[in-house]
Every structure is written in structure tokens, then in C-alpha cells.
Amino acid sequence: QLYKMIDSSVMGDVKWQSFDVKYSGPRPQHDVPGWMSAGYEVWYRDPLKISHWMLANPDYNGEIDYCAKQEFTPDGQRRLKDFMSGDWAWSQSSKIATDPNTHGSTFVPVILGSDKTTVSVGTGHNEYYPLYMMLGNHHNNVRRAHRNAVAVIGFLAIPKSKSLFYKDDVKFRKFRRQLFHVSISRILRSLKPGMTIPEVTLCADGAFRRVIYGLGPYIADYPEQALLACIVQGWCPKCTARRGSLEGDGINIRRWCEHTEALVESLDLGTLWDEYGIVGDIVVCISFLLL
């Protein structure tokens, strides 16, 4: 009955799907831990179809920005209000405008968030790991007004080990990290073609526009930021500040993909962990802005 109620919601035509993930690395000859042979089920809805619905919903007409904007007060002060008025949206839109293949396309930033939650009422303290999605084009008041501008697009797996010994095992911790990144990448793969090739999409005002999708901010608390950024717990996910010197002491530089990739190619895993706070043996296919 609950599933029927969910499917009958305004986005109920975007059906739930699932896939299984299993550990595929080397195993001990004896006493194989249960997490190595277990399958982990991940449920999700197609984020591209959810995006289509969010862009085309006529209820949002007049409350969607189809291009980046800069607003100023009468005295010349910059006013930052909605997401598309920010510097990042402006810079991404400028890149789209300078590319002949995407020139004139509407930039659609995809904002994600996740938060592991324990539901205790009538469920026996079950844990859930929902993944949320919204679009940066909607005005702030739309997202705050419970008007379906924020959608649950997935429930991530939560691998556990019954043995306290394996709970802190290096292989188990690596598998948990890799499971998270593989799941996110798999869920978002339908958006990938539209990140480089414009897609014609119906919008809330009834017009069809060429749009380019992009991964924007990921809203998460610190443990999830560390997981997303593949950094060691206690280090800053945005810069190379060491544990104990997060207040800005010393010379620290901002983390960026090219720098991290160069370090991973040049240094061993131990040095990456100890000197830069990088978990260097996780394969990451996507990157986000961390909030």
C-alpha cells in the first residue's frame, strides 16, 4: 500500500529501479567475512526524468531562471539571492556561451544532498540513506515552500559488518567508500550525455529550450564531505589544512582535481594519507562543489 501511495505522487510516473553491488576483490581462503559475499541493493529514480518534470512543471512558471544573472541594488551593490545569481552559475554559463556546440543553451545545475537517517517510529530503528536532488534554476522560495522542487532520487546502501573486528578493517572501510561513489555514479549516469550535448527540453513557460546539465553543490555534513572528497577524517575537504590547524595556520592551498590527480600519480598511498589527508585508492568518476 505504501509503494502504491509513493507511485501515485506527482512524480510517480518516474518509477523506482534498483541495482546490486557486490565486493569483487580478493578474498581470504578461510573465514570469508559476510560483507564480502553479501549483495547491496541500491534503489533510485532516473534523475534525468526527474529533471524533465521539474523544468516542465507549469506551477514553477515565473519562478525559474533560465540563465545566470547579476542583480544590483540602486546604489550599485551586488545582490545575491537565488542560486543563478551566484558567481559559480555565472562562470559555468560563460563557459557554455563560449563553446560553439553549446552556445545559447540554458545551464541546469543539479544540486544533490544526502543524510543518513534513523527512522524509529514503527520501524524498529531502521537506517535509511536518502539521496536528494533539486535544480539550481528554481528560486529559493520554491524549494522552501514544499512544492516538490526537492525530490528523493535514491536510497543508498548501508554496508555493515556483524563483527567488530571487520568494522575497522581496512578492506571493509575501502569497500564502503567505493560503494558510495559507485552508487552515486551509477544513479547519475543518465545525466552525463546532457552535460556536453544540449538536450531540447520543455520548460515551465511552455517553451522548448536547449539545456546543458552540470553537477553543482552537494549539501552534506562533514563526515559525508570527507567521504565525497576522498579525504581522511579530520582533514579539511576544501583545502590541504592539516588536522589541528584548520583555523588557517600555515600555508594551505585549495584542493582541486588536477592537483589531487598529480599527487596520486606521484606519491604512495601512505604519503598521500599522512601528508595530504588523501584516500588515494578510491576510484571517483564525478566531482561536486561541497557545501
Rank of each mutant, 00 (worst) to 15 (best):
Q1D: 15
Y3Q: 10
K4N: 12
D7M: 06
M11Q: 12
G12Q: 08
K22S: 07
K22V: 07
G25C: 10
P28V: 00
G34A: 06
M36S: 02
S37P: 06
A38N: 08
G39S: 12
G39R: 03
Y40C: 00
W43E: 14
R45H: 11
D46Y: 01
P47I: 07
L48D: 02
W53V: 05
L55Y: 09
L55D: 04
N57W: 05
P58H: 07
D59T: 14
Y60D: 02
G62T: 14
D65E: 10
C67S: 15
C67K: 15
T73I: 04
Q77N: 06
R78N: 07
G86H: 07
G86Y: 05
S91Q: 13
Q92Y: 08
T98E: 13
P100S: 11
N101K: 05
G104R: 11
L112S: 01
G113L: 02
S114L: 06
S114C: 06
D115Q: 04
T123R: 03
T123W: 04
T123I: 08
G124C: 12
H125F: 15
N126Y: 09
L131A: 00
M134W: 02
R143W: 07
R144N: 15
A145M: 07
R147H: 05
A151P: 03
F155E: 14
K160R: 04
V170D: 09
K171S: 10
K171F: 06
F172M: 01
R177L: 08
Q178F: 06
Q178P: 07
V182Q: 13
S185N: 10
R186G: 00
L188D: 04
T196C: 10
E199S: 06
L202P: 00
G206I: 12
G206Q: 10
A207F: 12
Y213V: 05
Y213I: 06
G214E: 07
L215F: 15
G216R: 00
P217Q: 09
L227V: 09
R242M: 10
R243W: 09
G244Y: 11
E247A: 14
G248K: 12
G250L: 09
A262I: 12
L269N: 12
G270S: 13
T271M: 13
E275K: 08
Y276F: 15
G280W: 04
G280V: 03
L291Y: 11
